[in-house]
């Protein structure tokens, strides 16, 4: 259908805009450095503190550690992939839990009253306080031969951040159908489950898609932060900490890790856009998303 094609080309245009945005940020970075050589800026613009863009790119091909045959780029890519799997795990768990909560809250007014305050309060607990707690509790858990691993803690934290935007968005979406639509379903003698499946759920899509976007971003940020605060190795968060320690010798290296984190974000955003196009292909374009 033509509209799907429009959306894909729209997506392409946004992608170009994103690239242009990145280019502009790069230009401003270099411009700032240039101004810093002429006048005194209140912050350090030396190559040590703000490496040139091209130094950052050349750092891609540096060896990971002295003498190793993997490059920094390969290491960052591997770490990004690892973090992506953790973020994805957290996202899936978070979305499932968020959706389930939304359905329960929609179905039973009692639960909306009772649960929603806790859902909201859950997000006011600072991650810094939460992470050690989860790791601490997690380490005491074991199901027979299966031992809790700190990677589960990372996923748990990602899920913890991801479920919230989704459950709130989904609840709004499930409550979106007009009373006329609901009365129609009642006149067809539809069961609650049928109403959920044939009306509430499809009607919630325009609310669900933006919620998914926010949840995905939250899962990524949650993963990176959780990796740092739990000390899990192998992901981009840990890599950033390691490379940041090398700023004196290799100031550009940490920025490669930052690029890795950006890449992670872009991959997730692209995936969600694909889901968006898929889910809303049959809806009028004036949708909320």
């Amino acid at each position: 259908m033509a509209s799907t094609r429009d959306r894909i080309s729209n997506g392409f245009v946004s992608f170009l805009w994103a690239l242009a945005g990145i280019a502009i940020i790069g230009l401003m970075w270099e411009l700032t450095k240039l101004i810093g050589t002429i006048i005194d800026l209140p912050f350090n613009t030396s190559n040590q503190a703000m490496p040139h863009i091209w130094t950052m790119f050349s750092a891609f091909s540096l060896p990971e550690v002295r003498g190793s045959d993997t490059t920094v780029f390969q290491a960052v890519l591997a770490a990004s992939t690892y973090s992506l799997t953790l973020a994805l795990g957290g996202f899936v768990i978070g979305v499932s839990v968020g959706l389930l909560l939304a359905i329960i809250m929609q179905r039973f007014l009692f639960f909306e009253r009772g649960l929603l305050p806790f859902v909201i309060a859950s997000q006011t607990v600072p991650l810094i306080a939460l992470a050690p707690l989860i790791v601490g509790i997690g380490n005491q858990i074991s199901f027979g031969p299966i031992q809790w691993s700190t990677t589960y803690s990372v996923m748990f934290i990602a899920a913890y951040l991801a479920f919230f935007p989704l459950s709130v968005g989904a609840l709004r979406g499930l409550q979106a159908p007009s009373s006329t639509s609901l009365e129609l379903m009642r006149s067809y003698a539809a069961t609650n489950n049928k109403v959920l499946w044939k009306l509430r759920f499809p009607a919630s899509i325009p609310y669900l898609v933006p919620a998914l976007k926010v949840s995905a971003a939250a899962a990524v940020v949650g993963t990176v932060v959780a990796e740092i605060s739990t000390g899990v190795r192998g992901g981009i968060g840990r890599l950033m900490v390691e490379y940041a320690r090398e700023t004196t010798s290799q100031p550009a290296k940490v920025y490669v890790a930052v690029f890795g984190a950006i890449l992670l974000g872009l991959v997730v955003a692209a995936a969600i856009t694909a889901v968006d196009v898929l889910l809303t292909r049959n809806l009028p374009k004036k949708g909320l998303a």
């Binding site: 007009s178 006329t180 639509s181 009365e183 129609l184 006149s187 009306l199 499809p202 009607a203 899509i205 049959n282 809806l283 009028p284």
Partner: peptide, 11 residues
Amino acid sequence: IAFQQAALFDW
């Protein structure tokens, strides 16, 4: 039953 709004499902 039919109402003033057609209330057709967009999807």
